[in-house]
Design a protein around this nucleic acid. Structure first.
Length: 269
DNA sequence: TTCCATGTTCCGCA
DNA sequence: TTGCGGAACATGGA
């Protein structure tokens, strides 16, 4: 029994949700799918999800950016795509426990069940036939922690970009998995202000930024995406109004790329 | 009461 | 045509 919702579903968080789903649910026979909120199905018919899943099991899962694809063992290959929006999560329970608040879908495995929760319902679940086709159709860029996200690719794609580097990092078509919180963290670790024009970064800055993407995301995964336990040198520990940077300066916020961004004017140039 | 929130998508403008 | 910024989406907490 473990409750996991209200997280920040960017790459590290979804990676933790993947491990959670793998640990608790793989191989269990799905006895029933209960749809409490139909809008969360994003165009997939309720009957289709039920017939696709009931009597089958989750065979394995694969994460790409903020998406979690779960393969269904039913002879022919089929998958469900889980997206967690801004506040989605998963919670696995024994049968005597009531589902948590904002549960939208329940996957029942005999006595136990997995709840998909989402308060604002900005995420969704849908049936897909192939993760590759889905990624292509959505034009998602390479996953930020996959081998496909090479330094050459990154330097190439941000060169000449007129948009802010923050917007570029959050652009899922450039690189999949980074959102508002982790883009702030990565830029802080790289010492770059979020509203810097992407194309104006010099080679050294761009290379350093590339390294920090991997460092920040991997570190976050290592700490189970639990911000409270992150190292002190992470901005995330001080990412709020009246927060103080480890350098002693004030953490500042402003709107960049339409989102509230936190940074340290002393450490980031 | 008003504002704001960690994501994505669509619309209008340059 | 393409790329960009901003609004909209849905809901609830501060």
């Amino acid at each position: 029994m473990y409750l996991n919702w209200g997280v920040m579903p960017e790459l590290p968080d979804v990676e933790i949700l993947k491990k959670y789903l793998d640990r608790h649910c793989l191989g269990l026979k799905i006895s029933e799918v209960k749809v409490l909120e139909r809008r969360i199905l994003r165009g997939t018919a309720e009957g289709k999800i039920k017939s696709m899943l009931e009597g089958r099991s989750f065979v394995k899962s694969r994460r790409h950016g903020k998406h979690l694809f779960v393969e269904i063992g039913n002879g022919s290959l089929s998958y469900i795509d889980l997206h967690f929006g801004m506040d989605g999560g998963l919670a696995f329970f024994g049968k005597e426990d009531p589902p948590p608040e904002y549960t939208r879908i329940i996957f029942r495995f005999g006595d136990n069940y997995l709840a998909y929760t989402s308060r604002r319902m900005l995420g969704g679940i849908r049936a897909i036939t192939s993760p590759e086709d889905f990624i292509e159709q959505k034009q998602l860029g390479p996953d930020a922690l996959s081998p496909a996200f090479t330094r050459e690719y990154f330097l190439n794609v941000i060169a000449g970009k007129k948009t802010s580097i923050k917007a570029a990092l959050m652009d899922q078509q450039i690189v999949a998995g980074i959102g508002n919180v982790y883009s702030d963290e990565i830029l802080y670790q790289a010492g770059i202000l979020p509203d810097t024009r992407a194309g104006l970064l010099d080679k050294k800055q761009s290379q350093d930024l590339y390294e920090k993407i991997e460092h920040v995301l991997k570190t976050a995964v290592r700490y189970d995406a639990d911000g409270e336990s992150f190292p002190r040198y992470f901005l995330l520990r001080h990412r709020h109004k009246s927060g103080n940077c480890p350098c002693g300066g004030k953490v500042t916020s402003s709107k960049v790329a339409g989102r509230t961004s936190y940074f340290c004017p002393a450490c980031q140039k």
